[in-house]
Design a protein around this nucleic acid. Sequence first.
DNA 1: TATGAATGAGTATTCATTCAT
DNA 2: GATGAATGAATACTCATTCAT
Lengths: 190, 190, 190, 190
Amino acid sequence: MARPRSEDKRNAILEAATKVFAEQGTSAPTARIARMAGVAEGTLFTYFESKDVLLNELYLTLKSGLREQMLEGYPHRASARERARHAWNGYVDWGVAHPEGRKVMAQLTVSERITEDSKTVGSAPFGGVQEMLREAMAKGVLREMAPAFVGALLSAMAEATISFIEREPKRAEPYRAAGFEAFWNAISKS
Amino acid sequence: MARPRSEDKRNAILEAATKVFAEQGTSAPTARIARMAGVAEGTLFTYFESKDVLLNELYLTLKSGLREQMLEGYPHRASARERARHAWNGYVDWGVAHPEGRKVMAQLTVSERITEDSKTVGSAPFGGVQEMLREAMAKGVLREMAPAFVGALLSAMAEATISFIEREPKRAEPYRAAGFEAFWNAISKS
Amino acid sequence: MARPRSEDKRNAILEAATKVFAEQGTSAPTARIARMAGVAEGTLFTYFESKDVLLNELYLTLKSGLREQMLEGYPHRASARERARHAWNGYVDWGVAHPEGRKVMAQLTVSERITEDSKTVGSAPFGGVQEMLREAMAKGVLREMAPAFVGALLSAMAEATISFIEREPKRAEPYRAAGFEAFWNAISKS
Amino acid sequence: MARPRSEDKRNAILEAATKVFAEQGTSAPTARIARMAGVAEGTLFTYFESKDVLLNELYLTLKSGLREQMLEGYPHRASARERARHAWNGYVDWGVAHPEGRKVMAQLTVSERITEDSKTVGSAPFGGVQEMLREAMAKGVLREMAPAFVGALLSAMAEATISFIEREPKRAEPYRAAGFEAFWNAISKS
DNA sequence: TATGAATGAGTATTCATTCAT
DNA sequence: GATGAATGAATACTCATTCAT
């Protein structure tokens, strides 16, 4: 009967946190996040029990946003190469479109405040990507390795690519394309 | 302020900082570092003007240690592939041998407290690596890209490889070897 | 604001407050009291304007409960000694039966948040006790003192007795009896 | 070689705490205590790890001061009655001389923040008091009870006496004397 | 130079109370 | 009236840095 909790407010806090953390690191005060989100200091804690909880939920939210973009329009029936390209482009495009989210995700990934649980959930295989990786690597030099390793290479190489695009936005397309070729060669050639 | 007396103390602080930051993140108190280094709280500040200075010098020290290992015994006259393998192995071996240093370097790399200057110095081309990269990429899919991009791929892929070795130390050699093949295919194949 | 609807709810809050304050002290949050009483946080404030009001009303309620038990079946026509014993037993029995109430009353008695008014009302003479004290002390060493002083001794000695009974419940009766003899000697002997 | 910790400062904090807690209860802010003690907010925590530690140490300090006064000039060879009178007077005089300390001690005695350990140490028998109580009660109505119970009666009755002296300081002596007679009768008469 | 006590700005979190539903 | 989300002042404690010894 009382005022219901607002999903909007929760999202506003998450977005504000992304901005603030991107600017000042995860040691930025919760008060600043609250102000930027347009809520009172105390309100932040009705949506997130503690700063650590906020950090973990933000991490999962960012990971989830990235996945969504990788899966959006995923061509399940195309060749492994085309599916790989789709996933690659999704990753790179997400990173380019969300520089703050990417920065924060990078910080959270190496933070001691993200629990093992969050990391596990955040890195779990998803959609058809796992399967695509398996197909792609089947005859390549990595054929003996775990798909997760190939997935890690995808992330690592995409990150490197994004950071170069950020420095030279005008060459975004060449970087994205060349990065993909490098990735594809890395995992599929023998 | 003149050069501080004891180079030993300076190193002790740097080592202590590595351990403490690896355990608790870079927000760990300087007092704890001082204690672990066996010096008084105030003494830390005669060796490093401020915590930020310590952070930056630690970053450069770590980067420098990594380079040393990549260059140690570098086969300047061998084939590009062999030189690449040497650099790759140097990176991976350093990471495996210095898990704390690697963890801290990862944190510092994404920290707002590391200055642009430090990042530039820390990522500058060195030894014969730049040249090796140029040769290796000459005919590959990355031929149009900057060598720095290829260097970034080396780091990124080596990091991914190290983190998998950390999870499965017994398969260190397969990971290191397969990782290198993937890297080599990524940059040299067309 | 008119009289709140439910006397039951008011009592539930008072009881919950007793439990919670006994466990955590009077600095326990009102939210916890509300939860234990089975009402919403805000509802508590329709029954008690503020936490201070709650504290004061609880104090008076507890005092009142104690009095009731001291007066229940009070033998107005018996000897002073018997009347004194009745009052004494009433006090001790109440304390033993209501350990939480006793604990909270002790805290409130020394709290700055209980007003002078409440203290006055809570310590006012009542029933035939005042008169009994007067008779009992008439020939004793305290004959020159105020009855209130004797009343204070009764409370003090009964409290001490109760706390020993709490530690050794099996010797409740000896403690209660010996305590009364000590009290009676204290006030009646010359 | 650095500035040594100052016993004076520690005492200043303890005294300030006594004043502030007497005025506002133990929920008074540590910042106010620090200010009143003339030290920085943080300094309080170099002398007392936490507010709870301060509370416990203050409790023990107050108890210890009370004991000192009870034992000062204690007539070990006098009659039990004279020794009892000395202890009684010591208690009452301490209470009258330290109204703030007494008030705070009363609050701490019923506080959940005082550990069992502190309570045990603070109530341990001391000097020749225990022995005196034993002698005095040997033939009285309490002969079967523990000396600790008699000690508790002494405290309880002395407290009641002090509080009446506080209301009527001019009748301090009569109250003190009559209170003692009452106490003596309570424990020694059969 | 080395030490560690002193400083006080900074911060996560709590909580009585208000008020939209 | 009942609910519980919203508020923001209040507060214990931390910590980089300074400075007396």
